[in-house]
Design a protein around this nucleic acid. Sequence first.
DNA 1: GTCTATAGCCTGATAGAC
DNA 2: GTCTATCAGGCTATAGAC
Lengths: 206, 206
Amino acid sequence: MTAKPAARPRTRIQAKNRAAILDAALEVFSTHGFRGATVDQIAAEAGLSKPNLLYYFPSKEAIHTALLERLLDTWLDPLRAIDPGGDPLEEVLAYVRRKLEMSQSFPRESRLFAMEMIQGAPRIHEVLSSDLKVLVDETASLLEHWMAQGRLRRVHAHHLIFSVWSLTQHYADFDVQVRAVLGPEDPFTGAADFVETLYRRLLAPD
Amino acid sequence: MTAKPAARPRTRIQAKNRAAILDAALEVFSTHGFRGATVDQIAAEAGLSKPNLLYYFPSKEAIHTALLERLLDTWLDPLRAIDPGGDPLEEVLAYVRRKLEMSQSFPRESRLFAMEMIQGAPRIHEVLSSDLKVLVDETASLLEHWMAQGRLRRVHAHHLIFSVWSLTQHYADFDVQVRAVLGPEDPFTGAADFVETLYRRLLAPD
DNA sequence: GTCTATAGCCTGATAGAC
DNA sequence: GTCTATCAGGCTATAGAC
């Protein structure tokens, strides 16, 4: 009698199939939302039959939850990586660069996150007002400290952080629109340049 | 024999019901996406029975299309309202203010638009690469003209426009996250202040 | 571990009485 | 114009053979 595959799979096949399912689910959930996604679609994308997929995850909801947990773990890493001992402006610019690179490399993750937010974050609302808020408040304090020292020009620190999120994630979430307007020009080279200029002018002390 | 209600309803009841349906559909489509929304849900929200709703619109798709058409008509008005004869910086700031007010007053419209973009804009892709592109290109030319005159500091004009969209729409689309982080503080007063500062420092000639 | 078959519910849309 | 009743198809999830 074989037990259902646990969160930490034991065989290579299990690991490979779980990974394929999560990748397929990311694709489908991030473009159709939870209710708009179907298990059939995810199974087809993963190259498995529907019952076989449901052998690895007990339900559609379980796949979605697993996906969101994995996402939250990594989504805020760039924020944690800000070094209180570094040069203020360079730290902020490096953070912006990391976020923009994530939009470029992991657009589906960005869209999954956006989907969840637009829907009112029914499944991660608590995490937002606890873990996320704490992390953002800490970072805001650091930024305000730098501003008080005159090493960054003064702005509302929380809205500064929001601006980084929105400016960078826009290139993942609204990719279609950006490309429709820009034409053949690559969005990300222009974007990197633009946000660098923006934050230098906004934050560099005279 | 009564004809099906046309796009321009003739009676007060028809106008009222069509309006109620579109309002309900806006609510449901903007939070669950097209496939995640159900006709039952929209009918309940509008206070009608499902068959009665389908008397006013032939299909779920037709409601969605009507909604998007109405949205596109108004969504870009703030951009069209930029006055080539006005003061450059003040025109940009006024545009930013209008967009932020739209996020505050019409968050559901913003989220419906975002949903459509995230899903790859399957229903409005052509409009993006034709009408929208033309309008944005024209505005970008105007901005570049102002920059060439030294009345605005130089930045990539298209990305400047993208930045206005992302910064302002963020407060509608990610409302849950913003409020979870800010707590009781009102997002929009802080946001208005922040974006004003941002664009002044980014664009004001020395 | 993976499949076919199917249960049982939900969905979009229609028929027809009033 | 609005309702009840209902169809046909799609949905999640399970049963059971292999």
